[in-house]
Simulated assay, not measured.
Amino acid sequence: MASKPLSTVAADGFWKNNPAIVQLLGLCPLLGVSNSVVNALGLGLATTVVLTCSNLVVSLIRKQVTDAIRLPAFVMIIASFTTCVELLMQAFTYELYQILGIFIPLIVTNCIILGRADSFAAKNALVPSVVDGFTMGLGFASILLLLGAMRELIGQGTLFSNMHLLLGDVARNWEITLITDYKKFLFAILPPGAFVFMGFLIALKNIIDQNLAERAKQKSAPVEKGSKRVRVTGQIN
């Protein structure tokens, strides 16, 4: 299979084919835990690590695994890395691990990870597979962070609260209170609010893509007109 340029692979993962707002994959954890920045960052980092490492290993063994055992082998690889991440979180960020709860083990069943392993890493070399896994994870994590920031800000009136649960004592004073005496907006904190904010993000991406396409069309239009003029002049001569 002819591999794409690394720049194209990176652009697909982070923007053009973003798993969260283009493919709409992994919505359960995306909407379930993105009620604060620290929760979103914790799950986003965990998902990115598992996605990158699983793509790496799948690419390495792609020629040794037969079609009969391909998917079970991929699931075992993903489950192994998920278990490693889960144990690390239990050891170093236990309180955050308890908050995220079942969503950490459920990384095993995240369709983003298995999908990239089967559709990309199993067909491409090591470096493109690692880049694909990392940028897909980064794209997913970026949407998680945006949702977490929006929901925490509107729901609680704060940003970066409880960041010490992930980053330790150095982040204990990172909390920013933007609105004092703010009465919490429960809808933003609950999962139904995540659907609404997710819709805004999808609409925003579509608007940006449309504007970029129109600008590209406007830039190419004078060139096309100029080329027609050249042809006409040639015919007259």
Rank of each mutant, 00 (worst) to 15 (best):
S36A: 00
V58H: 00
Q23I: 02
G137Q: 00
N237F: 09
I21N: 03
C28D: 10
L204A: 15
F81W: 06
I179D: 10
V33Q: 04
F134G: 00
G193T: 05
I202K: 04
G199R: 06
Y182K: 05
M163V: 00
T66F: 10
G234F: 14
T135N: 01
V85I: 08
R151D: 05
L30F: 07
G115I: 01
V130D: 04
L126E: 02
T66S: 15
E214I: 11
R172V: 09
N55R: 02
L24R: 08
N35G: 14
N55G: 10
D169P: 01
S119E: 13
V22N: 00
L126I: 13
G42P: 10
Q90E: 15
I189E: 11
I112Y: 02
F195Y: 07
D181P: 00
A213K: 10
L24S: 06
Y94M: 09
R62D: 07
T52F: 02
G193L: 04
G157Q: 04
A125G: 15
F92R: 02
G101Q: 08
T109N: 09
K63G: 11
L71C: 10
G42D: 06
G44I: 04
V230E: 11
L126N: 02
I113C: 08
P29N: 07
T180A: 12
L126T: 09
D67S: 13
N35K: 12
V38D: 01
Y182S: 05
F74R: 01
S220Q: 14
A213W: 04
I236Y: 02
E224Y: 11
L41Y: 05
I189Y: 11
E86W: 13
F120G: 07
P72E: 07
A79K: 02
S7H: 12
I113S: 06
M1T: 09
K4R: 12
Q64M: 04
V232A: 07
S3Q: 13
N110P: 03
V50I: 13
V170L: 09
V49H: 06
D209M: 02
A122V: 05
